Computed example of a mutant assay.
Amino acid sequence: MKKIEFKIATQEDLPFIVNVYNQTIAGHTVTATLTPVTVAERQPWFDAHKPDEHPIWLAFVDGKRAGWVSLSPYHPREAYRITAEISIYIDQRFRHLGLGTKMVQYAEQAAPKLGLKNIVCLIFGANLPSLGLFEKLGYKTWGTLPNVALLAGKLMDLKILGKAIH
């Protein structure tokens, strides 16, 4: 097994984060973003993630940046602060190594210290690898929004999966 480590993302990591995010756009099953984004466009998103509330972590495999995982506010209203949305993105060179499992587990372990009780993820119904990953880790379907997105000319369902964190 390769050595996997995590660290809080810094401003210097944002170009890597954007690059990995942009790798997923062309596949039309991972993100609702239709065209590549710039570092400047992602800056407000990055700035909104505070390490002691909603962190972004970089994942390293054998010392090399391999992906990132974030916990974002699920909803801006205060009563929802106990729930966060998880996102994971893995550099194409590091996919299929079991890194996604480690990334989700790392975020889950950190969640209680952040005051979180639930983690949700929003996954397109056509994204079978991500659905399989989260279901394997105990996430359940909490809802489905049918045909809410149009990607590459196809209507997509959005599945909401969730897990209570103890």
Rank of each mutant, 00 (worst) to 15 (best):
K2W: 14
K2F: 15
K3N: 11
K3F: 04
I4V: 15
I4D: 06
I4W: 13
E5P: 08
E5H: 13
E5K: 14
F6W: 11
F6T: 04
F6P: 07
A9K: 13
A9D: 05
Q11E: 13
D13V: 07
P15R: 11
I17W: 06
I17H: 07
I17D: 02
I17T: 08
V18L: 00
V18S: 06
N19G: 07
V20R: 07
N22L: 06
Q23E: 13
Q23W: 12
T24R: 01
H28Q: 10
H28C: 15
H28S: 13
T29F: 15
T29G: 06
T29Y: 14
T31F: 07
L34Y: 14
V37Q: 14
T38I: 07
V39G: 03
V39Y: 03
E41F: 07
R42L: 00
W45P: 06
F46Q: 08
F46H: 12
F46A: 03
H49V: 03
P51H: 11
D52K: 04
P55R: 02
P55C: 07
W57C: 06
A59N: 12
F60P: 14
F60G: 11
V61P: 15
G63C: 12
G63H: 07
K64W: 01
R65A: 11
W68S: 05
L71T: 11
S72R: 09
P76R: 03
E78V: 09
A79M: 00
Y80P: 00
Y80H: 04
R81I: 03
I82S: 05
T83S: 08
E85D: 13
E85C: 09
S87K: 08
S87F: 09
I88V: 13
Y89L: 04
Y89S: 04
I90K: 12
I90Y: 12
R93I: 04
F94V: 05
H96Q: 15
L97S: 12
G98F: 15
G100M: 11
G100A: 10
T101H: 14
Y106F: 15
A107K: 01
E108G: 09
E108V: 08
Q109V: 05
A110R: 04
A111N: 02
A111V: 03
P112N: 00
K113L: 06
K113W: 05
K113R: 02
G115M: 02
G115Y: 05
G115I: 02
L116W: 05
K117F: 09
C121A: 15
C121N: 14
L122D: 08
N127L: 10
L128P: 11
S130E: 10
S130F: 12
L133C: 12
F134V: 10
E135A: 15
E135R: 11
E135P: 02
K136F: 15
L137F: 13
G138V: 04
Y139D: 03
Y139N: 04
K140R: 06
W142Y: 02
G143T: 00
L145P: 00
N147D: 09
V148A: 09
V148N: 06
A149C: 09
L150D: 03
L150C: 10
A152W: 13
G153L: 12
K154F: 15
M156P: 01
M156I: 00
G162I: 02
G162Q: 01
A164V: 04
A164D: 03
I165H: 00
